[in-house]
Design a protein around this nucleic acid. Structure first.
Length: 294
RNA sequence: GCCGCGGUAGCUCAGUGGUAGAGCGUUCCGCUGAAAACGGAAAGGUCUCGGUGGUCCGAUUCCACUCCGCGGCA
């Protein structure tokens, strides 16, 4: 049985995913499902570079603004939500586009990761966070010696999650892949220097548009705490520091610029090794690929 | 002009009479329900510690002079 088709548009931050995906969706009767771990949140707009209503120009967008910034969201939830919406779009005879820069989210769909059926145990995680990596590794060894060998042994996050799973299931099952869709992966290609310029330009433009004010308002209305802003990272982290007078605006811009650049490298670290991705420079190239594939 | 302090990796600084160190940054990499998260690795000092001489078997480390920066007194 043939799997339904899914077009995936990915690339580093500021590469132009939003613009390209809307253009493509317009000419192809498409609908867009976001794959962005921060645009998921309500009220985080300018800081996440979220599409505006106007930019959408009538193309339906999903998985934006679905949870409050104070809540923690996860890939597991994302995958469930995304499957549901993509299937709905397919049923309505429209073409689904998965668009975003959160590699972890994208691959949970593209590769169909089958996460173990467990509950997030914040209490346990908090307890475990007090322990050293050595201690965590010892605990995991007792629960699941096999997984203890394959996890990143110095990474507390990974160790804690493995312990969480093993506590609930008795062991950590191997992650199985069960892709639900036939995916066409299109990546937006940008040279380093070009991307650096784009990042800077977009950063300054958003500051002009009131990005600092956005964070100020969220802070004043208690939608966003300083701690949470720090967890959310990048724009929220640095703008919050500026608002709290910990840094000057020049320091804020400089730190942000270099942090966003580093973030883009991190994204490319993930995409760069994926041979399935077709790298394009513009709409024409993307359209040609889609035409051939569909 | 005098006195004091400092000049060591891109930045902030440790340090020792006997083959140069940390943190940050940079680059690269990993990633099984926090992923803008979380973690790992490497490169970098014209054989080199501002410069020139001296003491010493040996000086980045001690001494003298010199240049530069900072602070104080004039």
């Amino acid at each position: 049985m043939l799997k339904p088709k899914l077009i995936v548009i990915l690339g580093p931050t500021a590469s132009g995913k939003t613009g390209l995906s809307i253009k493509l969706a317009k000419t192809l009767k498409g609908e867009i499902v976001s794959a962005d771990s921060r645009q998921i949140y309500k009220h985080l707009d300018l800081g996440t570079g979220k599409v505006t209503k106007k930019e959408m120009s009538g193309i339906p967008h999903y998985l934006l603004d679905i949870v409050l910034p104070s809540k923690k969201y996860s890939v597991g939830q994302y995958q469930k939500n995304a499957y549901k919406i993509i299937n709905k779009i397919i049923k309505s005879k429209k073409i689904p586009f998965l668009v975003g820069g959160s590699a972890f989210y994208i691959y949970s769909i593209v590769d169909g990761w089958q996460f173990p059926q467990t509950k997030t145990d914040w209490k346990l995680r908090k307890e475990l966070e007090k322990k050293s990596v050595q201690e965590l590794l010892e605990i995991l060894k007792k629960l699941d010696p096999k997984r203890a060998q394959t996890v990143e042994q110095k990474n507390p996050r990974r160790l804690i999650r493995a312990i969480e799973i093993a506590t609930q299931l008795g062991y950590v099952p191997e992650l199985k892949h069960n892709p639900q869709y036939d995916c066409l992966l299109i990546g937006i290609k940008r040279e380093d220097q070009e991307l650096k310029k784009l990042i800077k330009k977009r950063l300054l433009a958003r500051i002009d548009q009131g990005m600092v004010k956005e964070v100020q308002n969220l802070y004043r209305k208690k939608i966003l705490t300083a701690k949470r802003a720090n967890e959310l990272g990048l724009e929220y982290k640095w703008i919050m520091k500026y608002i709290l007078n910990e840094i000057t605006s020049a320091q804020m811009i400089e730190s942000l610029n270099s942090d966003i650049w580093r973030f883009s490298r991190h994204q490319m670290n993930w995409f760069g090794k994926d041979k399935r991705i077709h790298w394009v420079k513009n709409q024409q190239e993307a359209q040609k690929l889609i035409k051939k594939w569909y």
